[in-house]
């Protein structure tokens, strides 16, 4: 899958896209129809969407990027607020000359999608929000553990429940490798930004585009209930969480085909609208 670096105020940002490779400083070639922009979770990077993008790439233009301080984008520091992350996402979309993208947000990426859709309701074609329940459950203990990691007082934790129980060893290995590609200091800032977002977010009613909540069926009941409660609190959106079998939090690479079907449905609905 082609990758290229964009520069925003001198900061290199890694962009992955479907379709043919394009020259430096040139945006990806867009197919006709909606474009899908994938927004990654806290402490992760765009590589988590590679299988999903491959599954969608035959008939949709798909983009994803690494936030500053994540994966292979520049900067030692992550962005301190979801709003600034959304600004980067809108800048990426503008640079790529795409309009009204379908936003696929995973975990913290779902918050970025919500922020964007609430601030610019007409600029987003649809939202596919996955793995939100776990992000809604970020607690003081999780944040404190990550703080200990950044101080060198604890090893970086690996949570095997992020993938479905009894998954293939390759998936478990990938889950581990995806989790160590970003500096834990960035992960801590992400966690804090996510927590603040829920404290401050008042834009639920401003989201008017089609919105769909998806989670792995192997996620805990608590996570699912949190996501459903959040969905119900939004007016005009599907109030249930669509569950994908044999997947947990990392469903973008656990079940990319199943997620791709749902994203395609959203793209079709957006195009019809």
């Amino acid at each position: 899958m082609p990758e290229k670096y964009l520069r925003r105020d001198g900061l290199p940002l890694l962009l992955r896209h479907t379709g043919p490779t394009t020259l430096p400083e040139q945006p990806p070639q867009a197919l006709t129809g909606p474009t899908v922009l994938c927004l990654h979770d806290a402490g992760l990077q765009s590589s988590i969407f590679s299988d999903l993008m491959t599954a969608l790439g035959q008939d949709l233009t798909c983009l994803s990027f690494d936030l500053p301080g994540h994966g292979r984008s520049g900067s030692l520091d992550a962005l301190p607020s979801v709003r600034e992350m959304a600004e980067i996402a809108t800048w990426i979309a503008s640079w790529c000359r795409i309009e009204r993208p379908i936003l696929v947000g995973h975990g913290m990426g779902a918050l970025v999608a919500l922020e964007w859709a609430s601030r610019q309701p007409d600029a987003v074609g649809g939202l596919v929000l996955c793995g939100l329940g776990r992000t809604l459950g970020l607690d003081d203990k999780t944040i404190e553990i990550m703080r200990q990691v950044t101080c060198g007082k604890a090893p970086r934790p690996f949570d095997p429940t992020r993938v479905a129980k009894d998954c293939a060893p390759e998936l478990m290995k990938r889950a581990y490798m995806e989790g160590i590609a970003t500096d834990p200091r960035a992960t801590l800032v992400d966690f804090e930004a996510s927590r603040r977002f829920f404290d401050d977010f008042e834009g639920k009613d401003a989201v008017v585009c089609p919105t769909r909540f998806i989670d792995g069926a192997a996620e805990s009941n608590e996570a699912r209930e949190r996501a459903e409660k959040f969905a119900r609190s939004m007016t005009g959106v599907q109030a249930t969480v669509d569950l994908v079998e044999d997947a947990a939090h990392y469903l973008p690479f656990e079940q990319p085909e199943a997620l791709a079907i749902r994203v395609r449905e959203m793209a079709n609905a957006a195009e019809a609208a």
Partner: peptide, 16 residues
């Protein structure tokens, strides 16, 4: 002999 010029690359993270 002497050192006439030096430069240290400023970035500590240059994935690009």
């Amino acid at each position: 002999f002497a050192i006439a010029g030096v430069h240290e690359y400023e970035s500590r993270w240059s994935p690009d």
